[in-house]
């Protein structure tokens, strides 16, 4: 036995090229894969055998009211995120101000609107007329609250304002991630603090801010479904209206699911491009700039 070992050692040493690396067999992985595939097939079979009228799905997928609902979902996502981002940036800048009043207001805003559930906030805004029958500036003008507080406005305020509370924290984290020297350098060339924040610090912070905001935008697409509770006709509401009539509940919910997936997928792709835009100057660059990479590398070394 020992002489055989010696022989093997010798042959290995003398002829390196004859050595062959045999790939690992990974039996466990293959068994796992087989089990998963079987389970998935069973699941697919269940759906196939289940009492799902797929014709209802295809019929309603592009029906006018569902498409209108999809449109309203997109509009609400967009508008609520705009409100949220504007409020978030303002709240984040206020939070970092030297003025204790502004700081406290910002902290209070985040505390209140991040604390209360989104659905509850929607209901509060929608029912505002119960406590304030009219709104306006005393003596100047006043209007009936029910005329203003439409489902759209209530949903926009409810979703946008609570989104702002989350975005404020994201923006603040982004601003904190930027080296203090950037602010000082900007100030040393005569910028005021506000200008330096907006022109120098925030654009750089965007690199850190965009991924979580993209995440939250995708979250917002789904959060808009809450607005169905206050009569805003987004996609969930539209399919509900249809299944109240024809009772094909699951089929219509599948329709809504498909649309949510489509919108979220498109947004995810969009996010990649936006992130690319804001990472300008951080090593990665697009081909439109004239300087060849080799020269940059030479500069780095020299």
């Amino acid at each position: 036995m020992s002489s055989g070992d010696r022989n093997l050692n010798k042959s290995a040493l003398s002829d390196v090229n004859a050595l062959v690396i045999v790939p690992q067999r990974k039996i466990g992985t293959k068994i796992m894969a087989a089990i998963c595939i079987i389970l998935l097939l069973l699941l697919a079979r269940a759906f196939w055998k289940g009492d799902i009228g797929w014709s209802y799905v295809s019929e309603n997928l592009f029906s006018r009211s569902v498409l209108a609902g999809v449109g309203n979902t997109i509009i609400m996502t967009f508008c609520a995120m705009i409100v949220g981002i504007v409020l978030g940036v303002v709240a984040a800048i206020m939070r970092m101000s030297d003025n204790p009043v502004l700081r406290s207001i910002s902290v209070g805003y985040v505390w209140l609107f991040r604390g209360a559930p989104a659905l509850l906030q929607l209901l509060l805004w929608f029912n505002l007329a119960l406590i304030f029958p009219t709104i306006g500036i005393p003596g100047l003008f006043s209007i009936r609250t029910v005329d203003v507080m439409t489902p759209f406005v209530a949903a926009l305020l409810g979703l946008g304002i609570q989104q702002g509370a989350y975005t404020a924290e994201v923006v603040r984290a982004g601003i904190l991630s930027i080296d203090k020297g950037q602010m000082e350098a900007a100030q040393s060339i005569g910028m005021t603090k506000l200008r330096a924040t907006l022109k120098i610090v925030l654009p750089q912070a965007m690199r850190v801010i965009v991924p979580p905001i993209g995440n939250e935008t995708i979250g917002m697409v789904k959060l808009t479904s809450l607005a169905s509770v206050i009569q805003y006709s987004e996609v969930l509401r539209s399919v509900e209206d249809i299944y109240y009539v024809n009772s094909r509940v699951i089929e219509l919910l599948i329709v809504a699911t498909i649309w949510y997936m489509v919108v979220v997928t498109i947004l995810s792709i969009l996010q990649i491009y936006i992130e690319r835009h804001f990472s300008k100057g951080w090593g990665r660059r697009d081909a439109s700039h004239q300087q060849p990479a080799g020269q940059a590398l030479a500069g780095e070394a020299g």
Binding site: G181, A185, I189, G190
Partner: peptide, 18 residues
Amino acid sequence: ARQRQAVGMVFQKFHLFP
């Protein structure tokens, strides 16, 4: 900010706007 324009400052770590 206006007064700061009278003096230029060069930092140890450059602090160019990346």
